[in-house]
Computed example of a mutant assay.
Amino acid sequence: MASRRDRVSTEQHPGHGPAVELRAVRRAYGRGEGAVQALRGVDLALPRGSFTAVMGPSGSGKSTFLQCAAGLDRPSAGQVLLGGQEITGLNEDRLTKLRRSRIGFVFQSFNLLPSLSVLQNVLLPQRLAGERQDRRRAQELLAEVGLDGYGRRRPGQLSGGQQQRVAIARALITRPEVVFADEPTGALDTRSAQEVLGLLRRAVDTFGATVVMVTHDPVAASHSDRVLFLADGLLAGELTRPDPQSVADRMVALTAAHGGRHAGAAA
């Protein structure tokens, strides 16, 4: 798998251009002098078939970045493009359909429905999108994440790490262009976190997914191809081929430089 980290198959990514692009994206909450500038003009392009981690001090704009990039929140200004299509101006109905068919999500709290079986949870995005529920693909994905034979169980019968693996299978069921992961290891022990990060890495290297992960953990970030750092709502640098120590050092420096400047800002 290491060799796949350095190259992306054009067969898996027939499209051209970035998977996600932000152009001068701003997001403000509130009005007047009390307005909080969560994003203050972010420009970036995330390549197809890449694994990007996003980090920054508290209040740097990480969560706002993810929400705007994933179409969960609308920028106050600027453009967001998914696979070359601008999504900023889409109405809520079209945005909802786009998220269901072209974007996968993995959250810290798993967000599985306790009343559904594991298999039904994996199939849920296809059901919500009005697509044919591909049980065979769902079972194959469960096998890929190490949960072969768990399809009839309920989420409450699984460990936290197992539930997050179900969430990853669910995120991949529609073959999304981008998977957004928000602190996916935040609620897990070290071993489970490593397993989940390995699965996200494999989603990129084996399935050709594009993964964008917000995290506060330098070890988690080291699984990515590139770490983007946010501070005060702006891009404040990046690291390629990151390792835990280099990420931690950069975060210490950023926090020291920016930590006290945005009390009360949105994370």
Results as ranks from 00 to 15, higher is better:
residue 129 A to E: 09
residue 172 L to K: 00
residue 103 I to F: 14
residue 102 R to H: 04
residue 23 R to P: 09
residue 148 D to E: 14
residue 261 R to S: 08
residue 184 P to L: 00
residue 247 V to A: 14
residue 124 L to M: 15
residue 143 A to T: 03
residue 240 T to L: 13
residue 152 R to T: 15
residue 192 S to A: 15
residue 116 L to T: 03
residue 111 N to I: 02
residue 111 N to V: 07
residue 127 R to D: 04
residue 229 F to K: 07
residue 231 A to C: 06
residue 138 A to D: 12
residue 39 L to A: 01
residue 265 A to P: 12
residue 190 T to P: 07
residue 29 Y to L: 06
residue 123 L to M: 15
residue 77 A to Y: 04
residue 178 V to A: 01
residue 236 A to V: 02
residue 236 A to P: 06
residue 97 K to M: 10
residue 46 L to M: 06
residue 154 R to A: 14
residue 92 E to V: 09
residue 202 R to F: 06
residue 220 A to Y: 00
residue 193 A to I: 04
residue 245 Q to N: 14
residue 66 L to M: 13
residue 245 Q to H: 15
residue 204 V to W: 12
residue 188 L to P: 14
residue 7 R to A: 13
residue 61 G to M: 01
residue 142 L to D: 07
residue 137 R to Q: 12
residue 215 T to S: 05
residue 235 L to Q: 03
residue 80 V to C: 12
residue 210 T to G: 09
residue 123 L to S: 14
residue 60 S to C: 03
residue 32 G to T: 10
residue 158 L to V: 07
residue 11 E to W: 14
residue 114 P to C: 01
residue 163 Q to A: 03
residue 146 G to K: 08
residue 3 S to V: 13
residue 117 S to V: 07
residue 44 L to E: 00
residue 144 E to I: 10
residue 165 R to Q: 05
residue 43 D to G: 03
residue 2 A to D: 13
residue 144 E to D: 11
residue 20 V to P: 11
residue 259 G to K: 10
residue 5 R to N: 08
residue 199 L to F: 04
residue 3 S to Y: 10
residue 119 L to M: 08
residue 59 G to Q: 10
residue 225 D to H: 11
residue 139 Q to A: 04
residue 5 R to V: 06
residue 168 I to R: 04
residue 142 L to N: 02
residue 224 S to H: 00
residue 96 T to R: 13
residue 101 S to H: 14
residue 13 H to D: 06
residue 218 P to H: 01
residue 89 G to W: 08
residue 81 L to S: 06
residue 237 G to S: 10
residue 126 Q to V: 14
